[in-house]
């Protein structure tokens, strides 16, 4: 049995999901202005995973991610102003406008970067865990991956090494059933994704990725396992991407998935379901919700204002931008 979770943590989970949802909805609202001139991969519908996992970490832990990184960056505490500024291509962006939405970083919260080649950041994160072990640190490194990453050879190379060396790393697999528009059944045989990690000898858990409380509890278990020095863990979490693979719109009409499938998953909204549950438990009130909405709105408006009013980087790119001293 899982232990009851502290009300403060429940409220934090709720607020974080709400905040990420509103941030990405703001992107949806502003994207048509054509001022965000880079691709965006929205995590709307999948926020519970980012929030639940990051809630289970210590400040000294490390997080890396992939192309759909907004939620991970924000849940980890990445700076919101610099987030928007990066998407707007500004010098004040978290990557100084060199990265865009797919290259987020914030060293102040040990968010070490996100990259958009499928599987490519997996060994890099494993290397961060290797270094932490080498440096005798007690941290855990988390890498967020999608269901397609296990189709890449480098995933197996990474987890093989991590298990061999008992590295302190947590592989969090967000299984949202699709890689771009290709369904899991067209890419993988009928077997559990988690069974692959298990076969490598990793401690493996699976859970409902749309339930932040369950995600938090499972992630906490996995992180404890790792912190006890028992080696890497793999957490497979089921979820669903509401909007198109890349961009602000819905795409249920283009033919690769059905509206019914979307509606079924829509009923498992991580935000609404947690809200209902916390209201019925009396942890949350409508007054608190209004307050949280207002807090998020003010912060978002301020961040967008900051991003829009920031300066673009001055070109051309110098050699010193490419090579470190």
């Amino acid at each position: 049995m899982t232990q009851p979770i502290d009300a403060q943590i429940l409220l934090s989970l709720y607020f974080q999901i709400l905040r990420i949802r509103r941030i990405e909805e703001k992107i949806v609202e502003l994207y048509p202005q054509q001022e965000m001139r880079c691709p965006v991969h929205l995590s709307i519908g999948q926020e519970a995973i980012a929030v639940g996992v990051c809630q289970s970490l210590e400040a000294s832990d490390y997080v890396l991610s992939n192309h759909r990184a907004h939620g991970h960056y924000l849940a980890r505490g990445g700076d919101l102003k610099r987030f928007f500024a990066e998407i707007y291509g500004k010098e004040s962006g978290c990557s100084k406008g060199r990265g865009g939405s797919m290259h987020l970083i914030d060293l102040s919260v040990n968010f070490f970067g996100s990259t958009p080649i499928v599987g490519s950041s997996t060994p890099v994160a494993t290397g961060v865990a290797f270094a932490e072990r080498y440096l005798r640190q007690k941290t855990v490194t988390v890498i967020f991956i999608g269901d397609a990453v296990v189709e890449e050879g480098v995933f197996h190379e990474s987890i093989n090494f991590a298990v061999l060396r008992q590295l302190p790393i947590l592989y969090v697999c967000e299984n949202n059933l699709y890689s771009v528009y290709t369904h899991l059944r067209d890419r993988q045989p009928r077997r559990e994704i988690s069974s692959l990690a298990q076969a490598h000898g990793a401690f493996t858990l699976t859970d409902d990725g749309n339930d932040a409380v369950k995600v938090y509890a499972s992630s906490k278990r996995a992180v404890e396992h790792i912190r006890q020095g028992k080696g890497p863990a793999f957490l497979e979490l089921s979820t669903y991407r509401w909007r198109e693979h890349c961009g602000p719109n819905y795409d249920n009409d283009i033919g690769y998935r059905t509206t019914k499938e979307y509606e079924d998953w829509r009923k498992q909204d991580p935000l609404e379901n947690l809200q209902g549950s916390l209201l019925s438990q009396g942890v949350l009130t409508h007054g608190k919700i209004d307050q949280m909405e207002k807090t998020a709105r003010l912060e978002i408006d301020e961040a967008v204002k900051f991003a829009k009013s920031s300066a673009f980087p001055k070109g051309p790119v110098q050699e010193s931008d490419v090579y470190a001293n």
Binding site: V124, G127, A131
Partner: peptide
């Protein structure tokens, strides 16, 4: 990749 991650740290 693992060496790159180690180098980042």
């Amino acid at each position: 990749g693992i060496c790159i991650g180690a180098a980042l740290r």
